[in-house]
């Protein structure tokens, strides 16, 4: 179970996907990622010193897609990697210890770079907080930005995203499912009722 998703109240297809309705179609997801890539290029003035670090597991895939689009649009190969934040979570004591996901930092490191953290859903902000701590132990970036496919609101920390694919106002009783071809066989963003016994709003 990808922790970042769990934290965001997102359950990939589990929950009750039949009851969920599509907020973004596959084509929408593609368009949104294209737009985000353009925004990164624009806001970072050509992405010269950008490193894209995805938060596993879907964040990592999104980071790779963004890099692919940036290269397609501007001919620049942006280093990408993944950053597992499990060991930095503030809710470790609430559950059994979890298996770790890969942390894979590009060989040139992150010192002096502009790191863009990439995640699928921004919810309470706690995942991003943990990611910032993890990042600090890996090096000293010039600046850190945040890109998310969906911002569903309900922040519990003073954190905001620099690049947002789509703002989806949600109720705490709802769950956001992000599906990506790499993991789920298709691209979509679904909005559905919280899984039984689980309050979609309880940012874990």
């Amino acid at each position: 179970m990808p922790d970042a998703l769990a934290e965001a109240g997102v359950r990939p297809v589990s929950g009750d996907p039949d009851a969920a309705r599509a907020v973004l179609s596959a084509a929408d997801v593609g368009r949104v990622v294209d737009r985000m890539a353009h925004e990164v290029l624009e806001k970072t003035r050509g992405a010269g010193d950008v490193v894209l670090l995805g938060i596993p597991t879907r964040g990592t895939s999104l980071a790779r897609r963004l890099a692919g689009r940036v290269e397609a649009f501007a001919g620049i190969a942006v280093p990408t990697g993944s950053l597992d934040i499990t060991l930095y979570r503030d809710d470790l004591r609430l559950k059994s210890p979890r298996a770790l996901e890969a942390t894979d930092v590009p060989s040139d490191g992150i010192d002096g770079k502009l790191v863009v953290l990439v995640d699928d859903v921004l919810f309470s902000g706690r995942t991003v907080r943990a990611a910032l701590d993890a990042l600090a132990d890996l090096g000293r970036p010039r600046a850190v930005q945040l890109a998310v496919l969906v911002d569903r609101g309900h922040r519990e920390l003073p954190i905001r995203a620099d690049y947002v694919g789509k703002n989806i106002p949600t109720s705490l009783r709802e769950t956001v499912h992000v599906l990506l071809t790499e993991h789920d066989g298709r691209d979509a963003v679904l909005l559905g009722p919280a899984a039984p016994g689980r309050d979609g709003g309880s940012a874990s």
């Binding site: 060991l87 470790l92 004591r93 559950k95 059994s96 210890p97 979890r98």
Partner: peptide
């Protein structure tokens, strides 16, 4: 140590 102590209960 992480798997024994890192959570609410050992894994």
């Amino acid at each position: 140590l992480y798997l024994l102590l890192g959570g609410a209960a050992p894994a």
